[in-house]
């Protein structure tokens, strides 16, 4: 209970900082929102145009592709909303730049800092809002009538997708403990990999490849698989991979992320970092 109260308290102060920043400089805030909207729209536009051109790609109709793109934007929007500030989602950056010292001198458990420090509910919500709008529009076009269970499933799947992307970012990002310069941007590479590939409907690939993309390189679990599950609840064909795989993969990736990050922190405590750069820290 104490932990929950502390989490809310810390999210609160992050929100306050973000609001103050937002109110202080209208020009930059508008630029931020425009940038987020441009980034979110452009990331989905390409695939949407492909769907428009070909009518049906990867076993999905144009509107189903749009629904999947909306889901992908929501997932990316949640990451942007909760894990942007101080690069908490792009963990190889603070690690590679030697900024973990700043976290270690706070009287707050590290997991709590990582969960709360990145929260920017005011300046970082545009991607999520865009995603919700796209999903809502697509759901309307598809004639979906979501019930409570469906909404709960949607929330659960979204959390799983977010956890998988962040987990992979942390697994790769832990390399920055050992090679701060070379691996500084490896989390960015991982997240870009997801951003670039999660938007493609992979239903047209072979069964082996589909399975690989839901396990070995789990980009399929970031949007295509959960979107297919959600659409499958409404009479659209389900993917031929058992639904429980997303739960298993979430737990596996999360455990690997925690283990590799802890191992990295132990290494950091032994070796420290010979590098320090303040870029991206509290700015």
């Amino acid at each position: 209970m104490d932990n929950i109260r502390r989490l809310i308290q810390l999210w609160g102060i992050s929100a306050k900082l973000d609001l103050l920043w937002f109110l202080r400089d209208t020009k930059y805030c508008i630029l931020t929102i425009l940038a987020d909207i441009a980034a979110s729209l452009s990331s989905v536009t390409g695939v949407f145009l492909l769907a428009e051109r070909f009518g049906n790609i990867g076993g999905m109709s144009k509107d189903q592709v749009l629904f999947m793109l909306g889901y992908a934007s929501i997932v990316n929007g949640i990451i942007a909303l909760f894990f942007s500030m101080n690069n908490t989602g792009w963990i190889s950056r603070p690690v590679g730049r030697g900024q973990m010292d700043h976290k270690l001198i706070q009287p707050v458990p590290l997991w709590m800092q990582l969960l709360t420090e990145g929260f920017i509910p005011v300046s970082g919500n545009s991607l999520l809002v865009c995603g919700m709008a796209i999903t809502g529009y697509a759901a309307g076009q598809l004639g979906l009538a979501p019930g409570l269970l469906w909404i709960l499933l949607f929330v659960m799947l979204t959390i799983c997708s977010v956890a998988i992307i962040l987990g992979c970012s942390y697994i790769a990002g832990s390399l920055a403990f050992y090679a701060p310069v070379a691996a500084e941007e490896i989390s960015t590479t991982v997240i870009s990999l997801f951003n670039d590939l999660m938007i493609f409907p992979i239903g047209g690939l072979s069964a082996v490849l589909r399975m690989a993309l839901c396990t070995v390189v789990p980009v399929g679990l970031a949007a295509w698989f959960p979107a297919s599950l959600l659409l499958g609840q409404n009479g659209v064909p389900k993917p031929d991979i058992p639904g429980v795989i997303i739960l298993i993969m979430t737990i596996t990736v999360a455990m690997l992320a925690v283990t590799s990050f802890r191992k990295g922190m132990k290494y950091y405590a032994k070796r420290g970092s010979t590098r320090y750069h303040n870029r991206g820290h509290r700015s």
């Binding site: 390399l175 050992y178 090679a179 701060p180 310069v181 070379a182 691996a183 490896i186 590479t189």
Partner: peptide
């Protein structure tokens, strides 16, 4: 400067 494993992972 970071070793093979790290440069190749990207």
């Amino acid at each position: 400067d970071g070793g093979l494993l790290y440069i190749l992972s990207g």
